[in-house]
Design a binder for these strands. Sequence first.
RNA 1: GCUCGGGUGGCGGAAUCGGUAUACGCGCACGACUUAAAAUCGUGUCCCUAUGGGAUGUGGGUUCAAGUCCCACCCCGAGCACCA
Length: 819
Amino acid sequence: MKEYNFTEIDAKWQEAWQKNGLFKVDIKDCKNKYYCLMMFPYPSAALHVGHGRNYIIGDVVARYKMMKGLNVLTPMGWDAFGLPAENAAIKGGIHPKESTLNNISRMKKQLNSWGVLYDWDREVTSCLPDYYKWTQWIFLKLYEKGLAYRKKAFVNWCPSCNTVLANEQVVNGGCERCDTEVEQKELEQWFFKITDYAQRLLNDIEKLEEWPEKVKIMQKNWIGRSEGVNIEFPLASSEKSLTCFTTRVDTIFGCTYMVLAPEHAMVEELIEGSPDKAKIMKFISEIRNESKIERGQTGTDKKGIFTGQYVINKINGKKIPLWIADYVLMEYGTGAVMAVPAHDQRDFEFAKKYGLPMEVVIDNPKEHLEASKMTSAYEEEGVLVSSGEFNGMSSVKAKEKIADYMEKQKIGKRSVHFRLRDWLISRQRYWGAPIPMIYCDKCGIVPVPEKDLPVLLPEGVEFRPTGESPLKSAKEFVSTTCPKCGGKARREIDTMDTFVDSSWYFLRYISPKMTDKPFDSHDVNSWLPVDQYIGGVEHAILHLLYSRFITKVIYDLGYISFDEPFKRLFTQGMIVKDGAKMSKSKGNVVSPDGLIESFGADTVRLYTLFIGPPEKDAEWSDRGVEGANRFLKRVWGLLDIYSEAKEEASNQEAKDAILRKMHQTIKKVTDDIDGAFHFNTAISAVMELINEAYALINEKGRSCFGKNVLGEVIRNTTLLLGPFVPHISEEMWERQGGEKSVFKASWPKYREDMLITDTVVVPVQVMGKLRGTIEMTRGIKEEDIKKIVLADEKINQWIKDKQIKKWIIIPEKLVNIVV
RNA sequence: GCUCGGGUGGCGGAAUCGGUAUACGCGCACGACUUAAAAUCGUGUCCCUAUGGGAUGUGGGUUCAAGUCCCACCCCGAGCACCA
């Protein structure tokens, strides 16, 4: 028999799968549907083995589910808009469209060389008009619902590159390209009102039973709901009042001053006429010039200034000073904070620095607190003191009672605040979907009518940064007519965040070629939610949250009947090399191409899967790849042994043993895949089976199992390995007379009665220490166990001079004697 | 600082319910085959002062029995970070 020629085998089967359309799906046939989705990639220059892990895992799941008889949909596409292509274009002069499409065709070849299969008829590419037409359509739908709006916002600005930067491009406060310190610049921006969905996005996390707990917690924290009270503080000098939000209303009696964010709308009015007005304005402008990063640091020295104004704390009538400080953020709560230095560390530090008073109102039950002796704020729970009628109450109870009191007295109102902010979707960049909006001097902001979509991204545009959105220079693009009045108008020149493109692509796969609608609602409803979503943890928050949000909006609009897109989520770990993430700059990138050439696709797949549990990071080792190859050769070698074996088994014992091991392996592999995708242990189980087969053959001869049984072992091994190493499995399946594809064959079943043996080897301990093992028949009585154990010479050594106090007997598992 | 993960041989990693710690693979050593090397096959491989003793980041605890449960701490990784 020929040796394992992976080059030939890989090519043969990759061609065959393409030809017979193994993964082509009839969308109308949704019986037993299984939607297996991988996060679509950004088309970068070349894939490394770390990327490969993602696709290989998905391919294993898809092939396995197919063998389980499910109707599997696995599509693939490209998240093709985005900054890297634009940056490369600025540097190298190649148009982003050209480089992106080139990258796509290169990546497709690479995916194919791994033996990773998709239904390519459903391919979507987010930078092509037939796709982004519908991204624009989604924008219009959000606009109609009042969920897309414009407002002034600060953006990251690199003064050297003369451009706006995305948050991801700001590295330690500097521009990722030139390292210049990033400034904040205020521009009109488009937002999606995701905050309207904050509560639902939070509540529905409960529905995501099959998501990793980690991801759910990250989303919860990101949404960041907190309950508290909005309290009114009237100004001492006028009728007006300021509202502040607190989660610690129990500490209200300890509030000794109040602080506003420098951006607070009332500031100017408050300091009008003050002798210190100029000083205060100077202070505010200094704070505003600080970068977000600088100001956002915990523990940085807090800076503030007194406004000259006072407010009244209505619960005790006290007049307290009103300050402005950089540690209060305008974006959260009301931009005004009641300061309780004794019970909040930030207020504590600030009060110390500026000599503001401090009053203990929550006493530590373990150790009495005195304001003058405190070195840090006491933020724990405790008992109320100096709090009027609430004295003696626990802080937990007081939170409720004081809130009740305030609502009754109309001093304050219970309120909920979220950390989540609205989603800023405008990008002053070229390579993205144009925002379909028109500005008319007469009619104002007018949406592009649906019939005029797509708003095409012009191709001949100067995309080198000039300080303004590149589309501004495309005169023919900008100048248009107002859809309302027909007069002269200009187009929006910003493009959309690429996260908008990726927040609905899983719907488009169902109807990728539809021209009059983004998708067919009936088909989408029958195939979604996605049964299994697979991708990197780095998308745990943004992409997954945005997709959930857009799905809910489309649900509310009545286009779909489900409001969570992904039923089950799997996040795979990174592959690292020399302890670091693979990157060109570190020079530790491992390309799959050479490895596939020297060992074959199956070897690379097998090693990638065997390297460790797929949800964890793993260290790549080229030597390990050789081990995987060695194993495949051993599996292949069974074909030779089979062809030389005699019909009849020459050794009954060997035959029984291998059959038992085979059924145990079927169970183990099935359980490992069905459970937590633990492919590494599934593969090691098959290795054990092969090891045992060889050990028995070496010992008892090539015909020890007989042709029948060896053939059965080979066939089942082929089936079990199919999802992991599809090419060699197909080849062996064919050579063993299997019909059609191994993936059209059904997944093997194990026989329960073949899993157990008549006898078990039971460890025997004395005082919890292992002293020997004894073989016993199953179902043996306790008395008989004792007799056997006492009769054992080795065990007896340890108990002969001692008195037996207690027997611990766990049937078929363990015996422990306490002396 | 807060919230999650994680810490087991030279290395990647196994270990359903608390029940034989170190499966499987890599590496290494020795042997076989070979003129030789590679490949392949076989044997061995946690440590020690070895009929025994000690090891799962450290120190305690619960238990007949702890990698697994409880308490305190150390280290590594991820996310959030002046969120009132």
